[in-house]
């Protein structure tokens, strides 16, 4: 469950070829980190899967079902954006209620993160008064709220304090172990090392390499993922 197949995906912004005939299979029930330098196409790739960007060509399927105009497939997806901005005059509680309404008010929602991330006290304040960190916590609550089978987390812990960051990471691990598909982008390699099963490294809209975290570290002889990836990239360039 939760397998994402991407076939021959291309997209350009003006002259810039952001995605270049990309082929990728994201395994279900695992945590895959999408890495790469700025402008490598990470965000565009994720946005194509979410339906925010309409790719020029190519095909995306989730468990064999093609991603297209019908928005129903997004019922299975939870998304935590990197920058979270909401209507300034609404409260977090109202936003959560709105998204619930849009999903038809399912009963089995999971609000444990409200308590775990300690945002209880912020739910009734207008959004414009919330700090960046608190907005991000609300985004996390929304992403996990409907127990989605597939989770997209875009820099989930950037801007969070160590305590909440740990809580969130524990939660991600818990979901991964429960068999959910998790797609993560992050600049913090220790986080990727901790959470991800495998790494997809994008460069110029193509896959530079794709490997499991254990393998990457094991074969490189380096002590952590950051070093291992650095070595892997420079090795390619020299060769």
């Amino acid at each position: 469950m939760g397998m994402i197949r991407i076939h021959d995906l291309s997209h350009r912004y003006g002259r810039l070829q952001v995605l270049d005939a990309l082929e990728l299979e994201i395994q279900g029930g695992r945590c895959t980190a999408i890495l790469g330098p700025n402008g490598a196409g990470k965000t565009t790739l994720v946005k194509c899967i979410l339906g925010l960007v309409r790719p020029d060509s190519g095909r995306i399927t989730i468990d064999g079902e093609r991603v297209g105009d019908d928005p129903e497939y997004r019922r299975r997806i939870g998304y935590m954006p990197q920058i979270a901005r909401y209507p300034e005059n609404l409260t977090a509680r109202e936003i959560i209620q709105m998204i619930r309404d849009l999903r038809g008010n399912p009963d089995d929602t999971d609000e444990s993160l409200v308590h775990d991330l300690r945002v209880d006290g912020e739910l009734d304040k207008p959004f414009r008064t919330l700090s960046g960190g608190n907005r991000q916590k609300v985004s996390a609550v929304l992403a996990f709220l409907f127990r989605p089978g597939i989770l997209f987390l875009d820099e989930p812990t950037a801007g969070l304090d160590p305590v909440t960051s740990s809580v969130l990471k524990d939660r991600v691990k818990q979901e991964r172990d429960a068999g959910r598909t998790i797609v993560l982008t992050s600049h913090v390699m220790s986080e990727v090392e901790e959470l991800a099963d495998s790494v997809v490294y994008l460069l110029d809209g193509r896959i530079h390499f794709e490997e499991s975290v254990a393998e990457l570290i094991g074969t490189s002889g380096e002590m952590n993922l950051e070093r291992a990836i650095a070595r892997r990239i420079t090795a390619r360039v020299v060769a």
Partner: peptide, 11 residues
């Protein structure tokens, strides 16, 4: 940004 978030919902 909110539009983007809503577009990731089944809408």
């Amino acid at each position: 940004e909110f539009t983007e978030l809503l577009l990731t919902q089944p809408v």
